[in-house]
Design a protein around this nucleic acid. Structure first.
Lengths: 244, 244
DNA sequence: GGTAATTTGTTCGTATGTATC
DNA sequence: TGATACATACGAACAAATTAC
């Protein structure tokens, strides 16, 4: 059942808006799936017997809303919707993504050692200046980079962690090697920033785009702080979900 | 005890970085409190016998970190830290802010009626096109605007709501007038966007700044959806906190 | 209410140290 | 070793915004 739609001229609603609403409804109804190409501007213009400029205005409005994405020379596509990233006590990237029928992957893009500054020493409950292991990770969903994370660990407490993480690509497994069989997320703080140059390059964003910044603290079953992470997420590809 | 600090030239650490670290430590130690003015560029330059440019670079680094804020003609100040905005099952703006020894206030900045679109009809479990009451709110902390929210309610279900909200400035009280004695937050989705022109004007932000966008659904004690809200928060003034 | 002083912002130029090929 | 590029540091002058008198 395709809805029969006619353009209502002189009804107080601009023609471009009526076309935009129609397209939006079609997408919501599933006629055009995520990533699918919508009809060309000329097609739509012919279907409603309006000028192509009118259709362009409608598409521009939906593009501004983030519903469509127009690629010159290729066509107009239904924009990918942001992937839900629920934050709960047990938050595991790969489980979350797999659970949404997508393919997670990731790799280490850097590591190093640095002394704990004021923020990190308080979060991890270690003295100021304690040597910390820093691991930088890139997480990818269906081949598209979605977030970069920087994690800090007390170096002396986890001797084999870096090697284990480099090999497995999983904090869960790497911590298990170090004798931490489980961990939970104690607190997360979410804020928004403009992407910096380095993250923009890694995530394939242009500068000036917003990123969601999540700073989180993980604790072991005894309640001892083990891992502090600062995650930068491409805001148009991931959204944080809080369930109550 | 003021730490005796000397600049170490040729030690592999840039002078500007040493000055930045010193300033950061002073702030962490409480020498300069939140909102307080730090010494002028000229003062610091004289104290360490370096060029003013070198001090400016240090200050620029801390500004980028969000630790300092420089106002032309006034001075350089320790930046206000973002207010925590914990999202729990029972989330009430005024209680949250009062609990942090700050003064909340707010006012209605607009209202209207509109038919439910696809998103709203699903969220509020009403048929497409159902008339919805829309209320726009500005929330202020200590005199500084921090967020704007747009809330939607099923109009037929809450006849006196708009008048009651306009009078009390509180959804809790207004809903109580309509027979809803309590409500809880079922789900929140957090993403980041660039502020639009309208919100920028209301929040006193310049365009291009990021905002945290929280879309949340409130339900009554029976579990029926009552209120859908889209909140835009100034990212440098509020941060969402998730406790597990 | 006008003016001077104060403070940050901007733009020149110059010199030096450091990393890379 | 040389050539090159880049970051660091200093100096002088002026513009713009704010505050104090």
């Amino acid at each position: 059942m395709t809805t029969q739609v006619k353009i209502d001229r002189g009804a107080g609603i601009a023609v471009w808006r009526q076309i935009a609403e129609w397209l939006k409804a079609e997408i919501a109804a599933g006629t055009y799936a995520e990533g699918a190409r919508v009809p060309t501007e000329a097609d739509i213009a012919g279907r409603f017997d309006v000028n192509r400029h009118t259709v362009r205005r409608a598409i521009a409005a939906l593009t501004a809303e983030g519903i469509l994405r127009a690629d010159q020379g290729r066509g107009t596509f239904v924009a990918a919707t942001a992937i839900d990233y629920p934050i709960r006590s047990r938050t595991r990237f790969s489980e979350i993504i797999s659970g949404q029928d997508r393919t997670p992957s990731g790799r280490m893009i850097g590591s190093g050692t640095e002394p704990a500054d004021a923020l990190l020493s308080e979060a991890l409950s270690v003295p100021l200046g304690t040597p910390l292991l820093r691991i930088e990770t890139l997480r990818v969903v269906d081949g598209i980079p979605v977030l970069v994370g920087t994690s800090w660990f007390e170096q002396a407490r986890f001797p084999g962690l870096l090697a284990a993480y480099a090999e497995t690509g999983s904090f869960t497994k790497a911590l298990s090697v170090c004798g931490i069989d489980d961990y939970t997320r104690k607190q997360s703080k979410v804020t928004a920033e403009l992407v910096d140059q380095e993250d923009a390059a890694v995530l394939g964003l242009v500068s000036g785009q917003p990123v969601l910044v999540v700073e989180s603290l993980n604790v072991d079953p005894q309640g001892t702080a083990t891992q502090y992470t600062r995650t930068r997420m491409a805001a148009d590809r991931l959204q944080v979900v809080i369930e109550n």
